[in-house]
Write a protein that binds this DNA or RNA. Structure first.
Lengths: 233, 233
DNA sequence: ACTCGAAAGTCATCTGATGACTTTCACTGT
DNA sequence: ACAGTGAAAGTCATCAGATGACTTTCGAGT
């Protein structure tokens, strides 16, 4: 086993066995180097790996701390890499997103409060009122994030936020067809918000699913022509 | 921006813009250090971060290569960290797993072939025949993996495999109640496989969902008594 | 009791040197 | 001409030492 791997697994083991708990500060570099039997350079590389994965968090001048180890912490690390995926792979992600958006919509319908309804329709009105595609995209994000929040599962809400962030990079609303797409999108939002307000989980799930499916079709339409070069390695 | 961040974002940008494509070898450390304006140590830390995230892959003596950038590549990185989550956070993950297992079961029911049916029932028979909890757990994994594979979305199959790997760490089948749990689990499997064989997506989804929910209840029952200390930061 | 500054502790970075592994290619023997 | 062998170049892996930057702590002074 290489030195970096030794340090990486050693640290992971300390956290996994509870020797280092969430939020706790880990020993300084010098001590860990001695205990793990690696140089500072190798240890630092292992620390960076765990930091990239959302497990620990170095603070310059203070020390290195274990994260809270909530699912959101480690899922957030996906946001750094998901945007590197080619569009072809992204469509598989969309199938997952479609299923999960439908689920949170149904959950939100079952749990929604009058205040939630007010918030959702307020966001819709702002969305319909603005002409700035960037602002519209931002409001769209907040609309879906609110539904996910009401759904009651922070981990799932984070996961969907990561998926959406990737989609937003495409900025479909800035295309020549943008206004048409936005009109259709706004309609979808009203149907979805109404289903939630009616506390109708089945209708909400259906509306959310077809909304995501619509976005998926747009991306398909605007993605570069399919390359039939089998992606064999 | 720190030196490591500079290198990290620089590399990520090269990959994101296509200057470095999937499978391609990236320039040697020396060149990248000069181009990015950081020392070798800082560059190596950035490389390790991207490697931990499944984006690049260093090969000793040969060079460092961009991964294929399939969704599975980056999702696989979660398997290193998901097992560090405390059980409380894991239950949120279970809700996601439940929804997605139901979806792949329905998909599998819609797409299944006679060969799939044979494979599934063969696995079930092996599962019922063995008395070794570890082997049973392994067969259970293969059973669900086969369904996910037939579901047709490799990304989703990988994601579910990661979730299951975390659950298997608990080894519920080795508990005193293990035999009872296994009997119930085996029944669930037969119901699920039958629904798939009948090409009945609705029944398959329901069976998968209740199977996961059952596992979830077992974990809840065996998890340490709930700590009511509100987890506010 | 409060403010300020020095000192200690810790992470961040750079430089240089050496080792290990892979790949390439010229050389040698058949 | 061909195959096998071994040396050499290229590349990543690791270590060691020194310096800088930032945070926290604590004591002196007001």
């Amino acid at each position: 086993m290489s030195a970096v791997e030794k340090a990486f697994h050693g640290l992971r083991h300390m956290i996994g066995t509870g020797r280092l708990g969430p939020g706790e500060r880990i020993p300084p570099e010098g001590e860990l180097c001695e205990e793990l039997g690696v140089s500072r350079g190798s240890l630092r590389e292992a620390v960076r790996m765990l930091a990239a994965l959302g497990v620990i968090e170095p603070r310059h001048g203070s020390g290195t701390y274990v994260s809270q180890l909530r699912p959101e912490d480690v899922i957030g690390s996906l946001s750094l890499t998901l945007e590197l995926l080619p569009l072809s792979g992204l469509l598989e992600v969309y199938e997952i997103r479609r299923v999960l958006e439908a689920h949170v919509a149904a959950q939100a319908a079952a749990r929604c409060t009058p205040e939630t309804v007010r918030t959702l329709f307020s966001l819709i009105e702002d969305m319909e009122a603005t002409s700035d595609p960037t602002e519209a995209s931002e409001l769209d994000h907040r609309f879906h994030a609110e539904i996910a929040r009401v759904g009651g599962n922070p981990t799932l809400a984070t996961l969907l936020a990561v998926f959406r962030a990737r989609s937003r990079k495409y900025q479909v609303f800035t295309l020549p067809e943008g206004p048409d797409l936005r009109r259709k999108s706004d309609d979808d939002h009203r149907v979805l918000a109404t289903a939630i307000a009616d506390r109708d989980p089945v209708a909400a799930a259906g509306a959310a699913q077809s909304h995501v499916a619509q976005t998926e079709r747009w991306l398909r339409a605007f993605m570069p022509p399919v390359e039939e070069t089998g992606d064999g390695d």
